[in-house]
Design a protein around this nucleic acid. Structure first.
Lengths: 249, 249
DNA sequence: GATGATTTGTACGTATGTATA
DNA sequence: ATATACATACGTACAAATCAT
């Protein structure tokens, strides 16, 4: 059986559970991708109820493929299904959101550390080049373009692990948090800071100090989520669980 | 919306995508749990084809709930769906299996590290007690009983992170690998070794050295998967990706 | 390589549980 | 609190694709 084929959703690659090998996409697959797109793009906001019938009519199909798409989306964590009550766009408590951001941070750290040990020379050069290019977007304050570079930067580290399962895994987590990460880079200041943190990361990757890279990446993700928390409204406490976090190194 | 309710499957707790809040379990939920059980228990072996109709008749229901259960199982990674071709119990390539074991090891390390910083005094005592109890099973060579203690030990560390999302996450990964981890502790020697490694882990947890705990846990998981690889048949190379793994610490 | 059998994907109808008046 | 309305869960039927001959 051939390896799973990733599917494009809003520029991010998602590992889908029941992805087709190649041929005719099923209706449920089409619908899943479309809805996933609308959710991550923010058109369907967290908490919004989704009516099977309505979706079916919108796409001109019966409720059956819609229901199957719903279950897939639930698996991805983008919607929540309450039996006999309905489906709604995943809405997370502040606590849960904080927990997820922590796992995201730790997973990114995991990837970065492994990538430090395993990236090829070519991959290292590509990472440097990418990082260098992004500087222009920072200087121009072009948030959207930097956001693209940022995604590429992190994706490069995912792939750098040379562990496809891990890369898919990290990408799925990222997708799942997408609805809550909108406007992550508002403010030129955050753009500059992000770039500086990336600089430090690249340096240590080149030095080959995996543990230091992991530490830097955790910090990088925490400042990012902290910024977000401010924006989303105080109580998000993305720096959550207990008091003492991650000591020095 | 209340937090997701975990569902018991063969002694392991799984975070299901569309878990019910409390009331009447749906047919698809029932079937999913039953099938998940049979897969993790090894009654349905990896690669085995699953016929919707046959399952439907076996449970005395229509194909509809069976199909929905299938999609959920696919989401858990226990089965693979190839559109218009059918469903089969997830069968992994040696490479992919190795990748998954690595992610499992890294995730366990992540949990152990965070748990080191966050477990309460009571939790630490409970961990010690549990570890102490397991010694008896080791001395008697009671593999099944030790396997239970082992699960509890790792679960205690999951919960010790005080991050429910992470705990669910780790448990799901563990479930997914269950079909391939059967007979992990064959041989008294491995039992003794496992227990010794746990001893070292407990010591460092009590000392509060999270990074050292992470290092020990990675090593612990690697020896476990290496043992497995031998058993499952040479080429599994659970110590996979590249040559250089995780340097010292 | 074409044809028939089988199985999946989708449409549609019915029943039951949830929500609302 | 009871009844009504409605959405979901499930069953049944058909179409289309895959596979076996």
């Amino acid at each position: 059986m051939p390896p799973r084929r990733p599917t494009e959703v809003e520029g991010k690659v998602v590992q889908l559970p029941s992805s087709a090998t190649s041929s005719s996409p099923t209706l449920s697959e089409t619908i899943r991708v479309r809805l996933a797109d609308e959710i991550t793009a923010g058109h369907l906001k967290p908490g919004a109820e989704i009516d099977e019938q309505a979706v079916a009519e919108r796409f001109g199909v019966s409720r059956t493929p819609v229901r199957e798409a719903m279950r897939d989306l639930a698996a991805l964590g983008l919607v929540e299904i309450e039996p006999r009550r309905g489906v709604r766009v995943a809405t997370l408590t502040a606590d849960r959101l904080g927990e997820m951001f922590e796992v995201m941070a730790e997973t990114e750290a995991m990837c970065a550390r492994l990538a430090t040990y395993r990236m090829t020379a070519v991959e290292r050069l590509a990472l440097q080049a990418l990082h260098h290019q992004s500087l222009d977007a920072v200087e121009r304050g072009d948030v959207d373009r930097y956001d693209g570079y940022n995604r590429d930067f992190h994706s490069a580290l995912y792939r750098g692990t040379h562990n496809a399962f891990l890369a898919d895994h990290a990408a799925t987590l990222r997708l799942r948090l997408a609805p809550f990460r909108r406007a992550q880079f508002r403010g030129r200041q955050r753009l500059i800071q992000s770039h500086e943190e990336h600089t430090a990361l690249v340096q240590q990757v080149l030095r080959g100090d995996g543990n230091e890279v992991a530490r830097l990446m955790r910090a990088h993700m925490l400042t990012a989520s902290a910024t977000l928390a401010d924006y989303l409204g105080e109580t998000t406490k993305a720096d959550k669980p207990s008091g003492r976090e991650t000591p020095a190194g």
